[in-house]
Design a protein around this nucleic acid. Structure first.
Lengths: 210, 210
DNA sequence: ACCGCCAGCTATAGCTATTAGCCTTTTAGT
DNA sequence: ACTAAAAGGCTAATAGCTATAGCTGGCGGT
């Protein structure tokens, strides 16, 4: 019997593909083995457990998403960069739903590679937001809060979309466009009038619908 | 052998409690049976399957969340209502993490009760947003897009928070406050200058951080 | 050609969902 | 009350999944 020539990487890739096809929750070692033409226990020569495999897929997904975001904003800035970032983010979630779901799970403590690629995404987002010149100095935390806000906006939309949470017969592209435009407007607004303690600042563009 | 006195409702409630304690993903019929002091197959006299039980928990959660949101905004309007709504939403996700996760799954086609309570949440959100007077007429879809945007913002934040996605040592309450304030500002802005086709409108308040 | 390692295999244990069939408690009808 | 039907809980059994143990043969290095 010829060998299958598996490697941890090939296994992770097959698992990621299966997650995209059948769903991240439905990912199973049995199915992965099957798709690789191998018996299920054989996988244990390459991965420690199902949980470990999931972590590998998660790392893989974060890496891929990071690359896509990075190249989406390369050479751009301001509104243009933000729009391209948002479009690339949602596109990835559509094209690779299983990987996207995997990308959301937090790195295991001690998984430095995973943490590193995760921070690369944050860095890309931070670079885009810095183009808006919000906050008054290097010590200002406004950009950090803005990163959280943007991630919430992007993930919230694509997650609800994927969950079938937007039932209404109303154009999703339009909703997303307005959401991103609104965020952009809020950033500009915040740049104009930096928030002193107590003064509400920023605003999410709103023309959303259920 | 005295009877346990189970009902579909009691089973669903026990399942919801377990989901809160151990996680929605880890919800298992075996654990539910155990917590009810009953053998596992006995549950089948009350629920059709694990999937059906999950749907019941989901319905339960949507109902509860809807009640909380409703009472949070009762007698309030504008910024006040929005802030209370947002606070109640996040509080529910914190207090009942398993139920919250359950509440996000879309109603099964044909589950009218589930759809109904889901729409009650939308109605509550819509009521709050209508207080901002965005859009120019009854036919304007701005409010619908705004509902989607607000849901994305709220869910995105609490989902990333629950997933451990906000690793930075930066106050989460403050991030959320700024996010909601920003959304509020964006709504006001949009009310002032209703968007004609092509004009970017609305903005998410931004002082987020990762 | 020879040797050793390691990848993939079979066998198996333990957990979960689900079905079938039994038996006893409860309830409804007279 | 009496009884028959219905309902609720049980044991037994099946099937799929993860995970471990131990065997075996292919392949690279000498």
């Amino acid at each position: 019997m010829p060998r299958a020539g598996l490697t941890p990487d090939r296994v992770a890739r097959a698992a990621a593909d299966l997650a995209d096809e059948r769903g991240w929750e439905q990912l199973t070692l049995a199915a992965v083995a099957d798709s690789l033409g191998v018996r299920q226990p054989s996988l244990y020569k390459h991965v420690a457990s199902l949980a470990a495999l999931r972590r590998m897929v998660s790392r893989l997904a974060v890496t891929e998403l990071g690359e896509r975001l990075m190249s989406a904003v390369a050479g751009r800035s301001g509104t243009d960069a933000l729009q391209q970032l948002a479009a690339a983010y949602r596109r990835y979630a559509h094209e690779r739903p299983g990987r996207y779901a995997a990308s959301v799970v937090a790195p295991a403590p001690g998984d430095d590679e995973h943490a590193r690629v995760g921070e690369a995404i944050i860095a890309t987002i931070a670079a885009v937001l810095r183009g808006y010149h919000i906050g008054d100095g290097p010590a200002d935390e406004s950009v950090l809060h803005a990163i959280r806000a943007l991630r919430a906006v992007l993930h919230g939309f694509v997650a609800l979309e994927a969950a079938g949470g937007y039932a209404l017969a109303l154009d999703l592209d339009e909703s997303y466009r307005r959401l991103v435009d609104g965020f952009d407007a809020a950033l500009r607004r915040q740049a104009e009038q930096p928030r002193d303690a107590g003064t509400p600042v920023g605003a999410t563009t709103v023309r959303g619908a259920r």
